Structure formats: C-alpha cells, structure tokens
Amino acid sequence: ETVARLGIRLEVARVQDYIDDGRLHERADGTRNPLQTLPLLDAIAAGRHDAVFGGARRDEDKARAKERIISLRDEFGQWDPRNQRPELWSLYNGRHTPGQHVRAFPISNWTELDVWRYIEREDIPLPPLYFAHEREVFRRDGMWRAVGEVSEPRPDETVERRVVRYRTVGDMSCTGAVESDAVTTASVVAEVARSTLTERGATRADDRISEAAMEDRKKDGYF
C-alpha cells in the first residue's frame, strides 16, 4: 500500500531464494534471523548504496546501545564497535571510502514508548499484527510462537488459540507474540508504558542464543 501510494520502487532480497539455490542452509536451531545477513550485504553491494537506513533503537539491546546514529561498516559490511565516530552536538560524519557504507539510525535515541506515542499523534496506519488478535500459538522458551511453515510445534508442545499481538514484527522463525487485549494505538501506548521488558527481550528468541547474540550478528553485517 505504501509503495503504491508513494510511487516508489520496492526491491526485496529473500532468504528463501538463498536457501533454494544452496547459498544458505537452514540452521540447527531453526532460526532464520542470522541468515538475513548475506542477502542484505549482497543487496547493498548490488545497489552500490552509500547509506542504509534502519529503525534500530538503543533501548532494544545492549549491542545497539553501542551504535552511533551514523554507523560505519567496512568493505565486508562488518561492524567494529571500537571504530565508531564521536557524535557531538548532533553533528554526524557520513564519510567513507569506496566499498564501505554507513548504516543510519535516525530514531536511535527514541524508546518504544516514544515510537508508539508518535504513531498515535500522527495517526499512522499499521499492519494488524501489532494489535491484539486471536491466533494459533504454542509456548516455547517463555514466548508464544505462531504456527507456520517455518515455526512448527514440537511433539511435546501444545497448540492453543490465544489473543496475542506482536511488539516487533520480525522473522517468524524466532519472533514471539505477547498476550494482550490492546486493539487500538492508545491501548498499546498504555500497555508499553507498563512494560518492564524491551520488545526484543520479550519476543525475540534469536537474542537468547547467547548474551552477545546481537553483537555477534552485527559484527557479521546484520542490522
């Protein structure tokens, strides 16, 4: 809908395409999130992009708290947390050499609550996944996981119908839902204000692989 409304070009790099032709293989832990890195880096190289915008925020994960708003990536698309430029008085340095690029995170200093308050103020339309709806789910690692092609219950996991919503919309193989009755933006704002866990901490299984899971992926070129 956004592409049609703005008349822009949408290009998609698909993990499934890389699995189908053998460039990537499914992981033993079932999560496809780390597999997104290679298609992302290939798309950046193919488009010869100097800068790539992301929606990451510092409150999501301690690795993202080390990011700058303008984050330098080397010729291999990799991130070095020790090679980040100071950003004083909102002055940003986007310079880079051929082959390098920068990742730009304009809302890095926002919180999840800031985002939802802005959505409410501007009356921004959102996909229904962000609001409470009934869904077939099963419990794993303390999270409600939706039943799907890349997210199937094990023999000892019971499928239930629950009213849930997604605080973050990520890869289905590792993104969990939370029980919620928030069906409007205002009720989501109230719910987030009460929460003591970030949305990634509450709903992303890939970040529970190890304490440094996000940082390890970012060093490889992940957003």
Results as ranks from 00 to 15, higher is better:
8 I>F: 11
16 Q>K: 14
123 D>G: 12
49 H>N: 09
154 R>H: 02
87 E>F: 12
164 V>N: 08
140 R>V: 04
18 Y>V: 01
222 Y>R: 01
140 R>C: 08
83 N>M: 11
187 S>P: 00
63 A>R: 00
112 E>I: 01
160 E>C: 03
166 Y>S: 10
34 P>N: 00
50 D>P: 07
48 R>I: 05
133 H>Y: 13
217 R>Q: 13
55 G>F: 06
83 N>K: 12
35 L>C: 09
98 P>F: 15
43 A>N: 01
112 E>R: 11
126 L>V: 02
91 L>Q: 10
127 P>F: 11
59 D>L: 03
50 D>L: 08
55 G>M: 04
68 R>C: 12
115 V>D: 05
127 P>W: 11
19 I>S: 04
161 R>V: 15
146 A>C: 06
71 S>V: 11
68 R>A: 13
147 V>F: 02
140 R>H: 12
172 M>D: 11
205 A>M: 15
108 S>G: 12
162 R>E: 15
26 E>G: 02
173 S>A: 07
144 W>P: 00
84 Q>V: 10
64 R>S: 05
130 Y>P: 00
175 T>M: 06
186 A>D: 11
22 G>W: 06
106 P>D: 05
79 W>P: 00
74 D>P: 06
176 G>W: 02
181 D>Y: 13
160 E>Q: 10
192 V>L: 03
22 G>A: 07
37 T>F: 00
115 V>A: 07
138 F>M: 13
10 L>C: 05
139 R>Y: 07
135 R>N: 15
162 R>M: 14
45 A>T: 13
215 E>Q: 04
5 R>W: 15
105 F>C: 05
124 I>D: 06
186 A>G: 12
99 G>K: 08
183 V>N: 09
113 L>M: 02
44 I>S: 04
141 D>Y: 05
22 G>Q: 11
135 R>A: 15
74 D>W: 09
40 L>A: 11
17 D>V: 05
26 E>T: 12
88 L>V: 13
87 E>K: 12
29 D>R: 02
70 I>C: 11
137 V>T: 15
111 T>S: 02
205 A>E: 15
38 L>Y: 05
155 P>R: 12
156 D>L: 09
46 A>S: 12
42 D>H: 03
7 G>H: 12
156 D>E: 15
113 L>I: 08
118 Y>K: 11
94 G>P: 05
145 R>F: 07
187 S>W: 03
222 Y>D: 10
44 I>C: 04
48 R>P: 03
24 L>A: 10
43 A>D: 03
124 I>C: 06
109 N>V: 01
58 R>T: 00
157 E>V: 10
175 T>K: 07
75 E>A: 15
73 R>G: 06
210 S>Q: 00
214 M>G: 01
172 M>E: 14
218 K>L: 10
157 E>Y: 10
208 R>Y: 13
27 R>L: 13
